[in-house]
Amino acid sequence: MLAGLADVTGAALRGFFSLLRRVRHPRPIHPHGLVLTGRATWIRGAAPSGIDWIDDEREEPVEVTARLSRGIGLPAGLADVLGLAVRFHTVEGGHADVLLATTGIGFPSRFLLAPRRTPTRAIFGSLLPYRSPQGPVMICARGVPSRTLPADLRSLRRSLEQQPWRVRIYHAAPTGKWHPFAELVLRPAAEQDSAALRFDPVGHPLPGSTTYPWVRRVRDPSYRAAQGGTSR
């Protein structure tokens, strides 16, 4: 039953994004973004998640590339679903991609999109769980400390050039308490936003995690349709 529902949901999302991509190419969603660069530092003694990549305490910071974007591309004065894509670069030359969008933080609001006008006090959640040997794992991020940030991307760039954005990353069971495990320090990157920058959590998952079959059935068709065979 769950597989059937996932197939129906995935097909509906694929149709919607395929149609949207015809009129908004190459990015039907999250059309404009701010590219960020920085480092992720793991928090020592963090609660275990069951995913090796999260639980391995790294001695050195990890280089990251990120992109903050507005989902539909509405004017800055209006609330929109904000997206935060983060690429964690590994010492082996590979990387892991994480896609987050503004959601609630409790249960069940962590499974629901929540339009926001600005990243200020926003919660960015994974919406769908990762699979670990210990069970499903959700991920979320939020700025720390709470800081007033502009909604307009140009103004946001200027603000982050003056003071970087500190973002804490958390994990939790689907109905459980959030546990911090890493902190990002992000600044505007030298490179400008372009369609060539793509994040693919399916092709570049978190090491030590897998995906539930029903999650793939829901997510993959829409990702592929939205990106025309690539990802955000």
Rank of each mutant, 00 (worst) to 15 (best):
R70D: 03
D193H: 01
A11V: 09
P201T: 03
D97E: 07
H89K: 03
A76E: 05
R121I: 02
G73R: 03
S146F: 00
P61Q: 04
R168L: 05
G45L: 09
R21V: 01
R67T: 02
R166P: 00
R147F: 00
L156F: 06
P164K: 01
A225D: 10
T120C: 03
R147G: 00
G106F: 11
P108S: 11
V62A: 07
P188D: 00
L2A: 14
R27N: 07
G71D: 14
P136M: 08
F16H: 15
P180I: 14
V167F: 05
D220V: 03
L184D: 01
E191C: 04
G143N: 07
L153C: 09
R39V: 02
D7Q: 10
A96H: 15
R154N: 12
V62L: 12
P136C: 06
L78G: 03
R157M: 03
L36P: 01
P180M: 13
A196V: 04
A96D: 12
G94S: 15
V91M: 11
T120P: 02
A195E: 09
S18E: 14
H89C: 05
L197G: 02
R21I: 01
A122Y: 07
T9R: 14
R216Q: 15
A12G: 14
A96N: 13
W53V: 10
S231T: 05
P119E: 02
E60R: 11
Q162T: 07
V35C: 11
L128F: 06
R154A: 12
Y223S: 02
G15L: 13
R217I: 06
L19H: 08
L82T: 05
H171R: 10
V8I: 14
A114Y: 09
Q163C: 02
D56H: 14
S126N: 12
A189Q: 01
V62P: 06
V137N: 14
